[in-house]
Every structure is written in structure tokens, then in C-alpha cells.
Design a binder for these strands. Structure first.
Lengths: 216, 216
DNA sequence: ATTACTAAAAGCCGAGTAG
DNA sequence: TCTACTCGGCTTTTAGTAA
């Protein structure tokens, strides 16, 4: 990217050489030459990244560890989001009864004001909870960058922050998916807020099929 | 990635905030806080990256420029390659007459020895040229990391380097796609080498449909 | 409020070199 | 050969501050 290589370039180099699958046998001199830095610098970088738990050096060579692969996957999803972003995509699931956490939080001014400001509507006091068919369906949202609601203190408790994605429910009513950073729900439940009572407006009952179109 | 942020982190931050589509209005102080560096550092970084042609600052905010988006796309493809790598994929096209460059190069010991050593076969003196249906089909190969053949000097000329991908032609014969770094072919022609005369072995004539399975 | 300059401190790089 | 230490010098960061 820039003239001078960095730790990051070394890691990308290792990735390119599939050091996540097969140990890469390469001397620090070799790596330094390829990256345009000194042997000493590569040596130092490798030590640092080994200490960080990003890689491992054995007799067979250098291997990238899962810790790094996971962190890199986040970047991958960020880039995928940018380069392959569709204008919208749809999640499907069935309506379930919420744990009523949503109702509590949405009663607090700290949240409602942020929703008003950042999403442009006053939230109805209650969330629509949708059980997704597969928990993987939510994965893109977990990685994607959404609209952030900040956490805050209230009554001696810390209320966690969350991120939102504008959405349209059953092709009719606008709302927003809200994903708390530390959710009580498993990753397969989608919480949706709206300016109206979605359950009533869409005449939904538990077990009904719900279609959520995530907008951008 | 590491504790301390870098230029790169700022660029990723901008990407996450869609500064490639919509100008991002953010002060250097804000950015510094989010990235964990000082306002001054962000200021300097922005100046540097503006000079590098990576971004542009106007009254509407910060925008990422195509130059950067293209460079980042390369990293994206690298990561895609790692995280979504199928064991193989297939390219289709029709046989065309080569410019016979291949024949010339493959007669030179400099190349044949490298092929022998790195690909494990002695190349037949001639290449199979496949005209792809779409030039985009070749794109993954252009980005992917292959087996490198180094360029060298010979008779006063510089012969460019190339990269290879092992492949199987028409599901039967093994060979390798060879992509010169500075190709005379357009991006829609695939050059394939093999230990045998592919044209004869597979009883192919110009215009015949050819299937090339790229192996890893 | 904002950005960006200066200058001193902190951190990083690589030549030399030991093991 | 190889890796990794030391240390002088160069680069980057940030506090202070001007515009």
C-alpha cells in the first residue's frame, strides 16, 4: 500500500503463501528481501507477532494461527461489504415472544433519544423478535458497520451499546434491526424496533413467518 | 489489528463508514479518538494520504478515491482467495491459434528448467491458447497468488516473469496456466503449458470448446 | 469550535555482530 | 548458514500553540 512495508504486509504475505494451511519455510532474510525491509526487522516482527499469538514458528516453518485468521476475517467481511454490497438483502424467520428486554430499554430516554436522532423515528416501546432459520443468516450483520447507539450508565447499571440497520418488515413497515453488543439473545434471534407496534400493525402472532429486508 | 493504529486503520475506518460512496464528515479529533491516536497524527495522515491520491477532502467531508479503492480491491481478492477458496474452479473458452510466443519462450532453458523444478514436468514446446468467453473469468487468477517463474536476461533481451496455476484440461490432461506479467495477449486469452502436446493429445482443433479446471 | 505547524520525546529501523 | 541482540540514527508521534 505504502512504499515501506509494515507488520501487516508481512501477515498478508504469509496469507498469500497459504501459511494458514501449510507451514511456510522462509528465512528472515528471504522475507526481508521480498518485503523490502531488513532481516532484523522481519526477525523483530515475527517475534512480536508470535507474542501476539498471531503466528507460530516450528521446524516445519511459519504458521498463521486461528486468532489472526479470525481477526483477518473481520477485515475480509468489511471489504466484502464494500465491494459486493447489494442494496438490500432479506432475512426470514418466525415470530417469537421476546424476553421483553427490548421493552425495558426502549423506555429509557437514553436510547429513545438516540434512536430519534440517528434513525429518525420515535420507537414504539417493544421489539419484534424474529427467530431466524439459521444463525448464520445474521453473520453479515454482525460484521457489517451499522448505525451505532452508545451505551450509558443509568441507575447504577451499565447499559450496553448496540448497532442498528434500517429494515422493512414483510415488505410493508419500516423499522430497524437492533443488535446489542452483549445480547441475551442467541445469534439466531433478530430484534426489530419501529415507530409502530409491528405485531399489531402487521397482524402477526407467534410462529408467523416474518420477512425482514435489510436496507442500506 | 495491533494496539496502535496506523494509516491503514484510518483507511479501513473510512471504508467502514462508506467514505467511498458518501463523503464522511468527521473532525481530526473525532477520528483520532476513534482510532486511539492524537488529532495531530490524524491530521498528518490525512495530508499524506491526500498527497498519495488515496482520498480527497472537500467541504462535504472526506472521500476515498478510486486509486485507493483499486488497491484495496487487490487485498480483498487476496482475502477472498483465502477465506472462500474452493478446491478448484473451471474456466471455459474456445481453442485459438497462439501467437507462438509460448513456443519461443518454452525453448529457452531459463524457463524450462524453472517449470521442471517448480511445476514438476518438462514442458512441451508450445502453448494451448484458450479464448475465454468473458475476460472477467480470468480476474481471480490475476489477483491470486500462483507459482512464480522468474524473468531473466538472454541475448540482450529481458524476458518477463510469469506466474502459473496447475490445471486440468478437458478433465483429462494435467498442465499449467501460465500468465506472463507483461502479456501480449489480452486478458481474455489463457495460455496453457503441459508435458505433452495438448492439441494432439486431446484431438483439438481451432474453435473447439475447452474446459480448464484450475487446481490448487 | 476547527486544522496544522514546530519541536521535543518516543519509537522504530537496520548495521554490526554474537551465538 | 541461521536468528536475534545492541545501539546510533532516523522517523513518527504528540503536546503546545497559532491561525
Amino acid at each position: 500500500m505504502f512504499k515501506k512495508s509494515t507488520h501487516f504486509d508481512l501477515l498478508v504475505y504469509l496469507l498469500e503463501h497459504r501459511a494458514n494451511e501449510v507451514p511456510l519455510k522462509a528465512s528472515t532474510t528471504e522475507l526481508g528481501d521480498d518485503l523490502g525491509v531488513s532481516q532484523q526487522t522481519v526477525s523483530r516482527w515475527l517475534i512480536e507477532m508470535e507474542q501476539a499469538g498471531f503466528l507460530e514458528r516450528k521446524h516445519e516453518g511459519i504458521m498463521l494461527l486461528p486468532l489472526f485468521m479470525e481477526q483477518m476475517e473481520e477485515l475480509y467481511h468489511t471489504l466484502k461489504d464494500v465491494y459486493e454490497a447489494p442494496d438490500s438483502f432479506t432475512l426470514e424467520g418466525e415470530l417469537v415472544r421476546g424476553m421483553s428486554d427490548g421493552k425495558y430499554y426502549l423506555g429509557l430516554p437514553g436510547y429513545t433519544e438516540q434512536v430519534k436522532e440517528k434513525l429518525g423515528f420515535t420507537p414504539f416501546e417493544g421489539t419484534l423478535n424474529v427467530l431466524l432459520k439459521s444463525k448464520d443468516m445474521k453473520k453479515p450483520l454482525l460484521y457489517a458497520h451499522g448505525i451505532d447507539l452508545e451505551g450509558f450508565f443509568q441507575g447504577g447499571r451499565t447499559l450496553g451499546s448496540a448497532k442498528c440497520f434500517p429494515c422493512k418488515v414483510n415488505g410493508k413497515v419500516d423499522g430497524a434491526i437492533i443488535i446489542p453488543l452483549r445480547s441475551h439473545h442467541g445469534p439466531e434471534v433478530l430484534e426489530i424496533i419501529s415507530s409502530v407496534d409491528l405485531r399489531k400493525k402487521l397482524k402477526l402472532k407467534d410462529g408467523d413467518r416474518v420477512e425482514v429486508e435489510v436496507l442500506r
